[in-house]
Amino acid sequence: MLEEFTKETGIKVNYDVFDSNEVLQTKLLAGNTGYDVVVPSASFLELQIKAGVFQKLDKSKLPNWGNLDKGILERVGRHDPGNQYAVNHMWGTTAIGYNVKKVKAIDPNAPVDSWALLLDPKWSSKFKSCGISVLDAPDEVVGIILAYLGKDPNSENLDDLKAAEDVLMKLRPNVRMIHSSQYIDSLANGDICVSLGWSGDILQAKSRAEEAKQGVEIALSVPKEGTIIWFDMYAIPADAPHPGNAHAFINFMMKPEVAAANSNFVHYANGNAASVPLLDPAVRNDPGVYPPPEVMNKLFPNLARSADYTRALNRTWTRFTTGK
């Protein structure tokens, strides 16, 4: 895809990958990254916009803007009011990935369509021996627990956080892995059997398991209590050396055929309505990638939290990871 962009525009692309949003954010906050385009998640972007990291998009240089999905634009607007700074690249959910056979063998009635599978100790204790993994993402996991408890997932109330911590501490003895990338392999090769993970990663584990032909079957479930919808966003740093090229790049990525090819490749949904007819039917019709409307209605954003709440949240998270 990058080669095609170079062929079309003559602009050469240097491509860096970050292992986490936190690392990218730290670089951006330090300034002078030299990047023309960066792709943070929307919850991080929200704070970075406030810190003055980005420049406003010049929409006259983005003629493909009309291809974007109105619903996604509106949801992204919760993070970037008025869609002034960023364009959606891909989006997905935070969901449950599980080993179908192992879970069925332990209990055929296990509630795989509910967060209770992980958050109710009655169930999590049953899957302890076959392995549970949780994302190392405090804001997302706590947000999901708050939704499970029937509270506002973006609450900054410390009593709500305490209630979520109680759920976390009961989950802790049954968790083997708290990590945001190792679980893909572990799920695929059967070392872990229930994961709280990102939709695209779970689908990746599923296809790796199919390729390995070891009899491991992975399924993705978006729990009925609702979950986080997250967005990876294109944005241009305020100090970008070539803002013109940056706009050309983002505009190129907004072409329907380019967005469709990206989604077909990584199995994530994109925010480009014009690309949907061009998608591989296996991607378009996968409820794990494009959830049906009744599920879409239950998805909530993961908004940026205040510095004080973030500190309290991460302290809670340390107590969870260390189990004390």
């Binding site: 190392d136 500190r311 340390t318 189990g323």
Partner: peptide, 19 residues
């Protein structure tokens, strides 16, 4: 994941707490 190490604490302060 429960092993408390100062390197990890430093990482959390720097990257997660942005402090």
């Amino acid at each position: 994941p429960g092993m408390l190490m100062i390197g990890k604490v430093l990482w959390t302060e720097f990257f997660n707490n942005r402090d």
